[in-house]
Design a protein around this nucleic acid. Structure first.
Lengths: 121, 121
DNA sequence: TACATAGATGCAGTATTATGCATATAGTTC
DNA sequence: GAACTATATGCATAATACTGCATCTATGTA
């Protein structure tokens, strides 16, 4: 039951839910998440590792990139049902739609590149 | 989405989950919850009202007693699926089984009566 | 080997949450 | 209306969680 509490703790944060929503679209690296949600690198990284820790995600490394995606196969049954319910709750939500749109234009550029861009503006 | 965060916040606490579990058994008053879980009156009251606030429960007053139970009819769809998933996760959990057992012997006695008993021991 | 880069993490400050105690509130009973 | 009682709640304190900044790690590249 301690695990269940942990799972709900992870889900009880708007930013973390927004990241889940992105990942429902496709596998993402840390820098894509930071672009799509306009959050800092450390925040994006921590959110992804929190979602990973409770068992929602799997991690694949490609050179410097950490690519996170849902671990549908490894995920236990309870987690899956909770996730399904959550997914349903996202439907029709404006913020979630915007985020998914923005993810489409997110490029696989590292944080330093993104930060330079932001400063240039 | 703010609502969803609220719901998960409420669920991200062991005691609150234990109370949900009791209510899956039957309607309870505050003092039955405090007996079954061995928690303080204010804690039991606050937990119940938190669960009420997000829409899981309905409240019926009988004299001095506040009787809380699941509001299956009034509950919205998302909430219901989340609750279903949670319920499944409770199955086979030792603590939850113990709590449900203890609820059977819980009597509808007020806090003052319960506290007197405890002191008498 | 030296440097550049994506991501992870320690730390500190801030904000949020949980909980006990005391007290308020609202029914009940005499 | 006075006393009693179940529940709700204000307040203070303690515990937890969030986040940015700086730094570290590990991989890739010249």
């Amino acid at each position: 039951m301690r695990d269940l509490v942990k799972v709900y703790k992870v889900l009880s944060d708007g930013s973390r839910l927004r990241v889940l929503n992105l990942l429902l679209e496709r596998e993402c690296c840390v820098c894509e998440v930071m672009q799509a949600l306009e959050i800092s690198q450390s925040k994006a990284s921590r959110i992804l590792s929190a979602l990973y820790d409770v068992g929602f995600l799997k991690l694949r490394k490609d050179g410097l990139w950490s690519l996170y995606s849902f671990d549908w196969d490894g995920m236990d049954t309870h987690l899956k049902s909770i996730l399904e319910a959550t997914k349903q709750a996202f439907e029709g939500n404006e913020q979630m739609t915007i985020d998914r749109e923005r993810l489409k234009t997110a490029e696989r550029l590292g944080p330093s590149c993104i930060n330079k861009r932001l400063k240039a503006k």
